[in-house]
Simulated scan of single mutants.
Amino acid sequence: MLEESDDPVVKTVKLSLKTGRKRKVTEAVDEAKECLKMKEIIGQTQTDRRGLGSNTAKWWSKTEGKEKRT
């Protein structure tokens, strides 16, 4: 949420969140962002019998604010 801020000072702040020893927050966030970028590269695929174009997809790179965080 802080990375998407309009304030340049807030954007540069790096928080250190303490989690367990198995996962690190920054690695998990980076991995999730990479997955979303890969989904955009692959594009919209057919997952059921309705056919291509029946579902509307919102691309992560084109969303802003709260939609991007969710």
Rank of each mutant, 00 (worst) to 15 (best):
V10W: 01
M1L: 10
K18V: 09
T70L: 15
D48A: 07
S16Y: 08
K22M: 05
S5W: 01
K58D: 09
V10P: 05
E64Y: 10
K37E: 04
E64H: 12
L52A: 09
L17I: 14
D6N: 10
G65H: 04
R21V: 08
R50F: 07
T45C: 09
G65W: 01
V10D: 00
D30A: 14
A28R: 13
K39I: 04
N55P: 04
K18S: 11
D30K: 13
R50W: 10
T56W: 08
V9F: 12
G53A: 05
K62G: 15
S16A: 11
L2K: 02
A57C: 11
A32Q: 09
T47C: 10
T47F: 08
V9Q: 10
T47H: 09
R69W: 09
S54I: 05
K33I: 12
G65Y: 03
E31Y: 07
T45Q: 15
R50A: 12
P8R: 02
D48H: 05
G51P: 02
N55G: 08
Q44A: 13
T47K: 14
T26D: 14
V25L: 15
T26P: 01
V29P: 00
K62E: 15
K11M: 05
E3I: 00
S61C: 11
E34M: 05
T47I: 13
K18P: 04
R50H: 10
E67H: 01
V10M: 06
S61Q: 11
V29Y: 05
K14E: 11
L36M: 12
V13P: 02
C35K: 14
L17S: 08
Q46A: 14
R21D: 15
A32R: 13
T63V: 15
E3K: 02
R21E: 14
R23E: 11
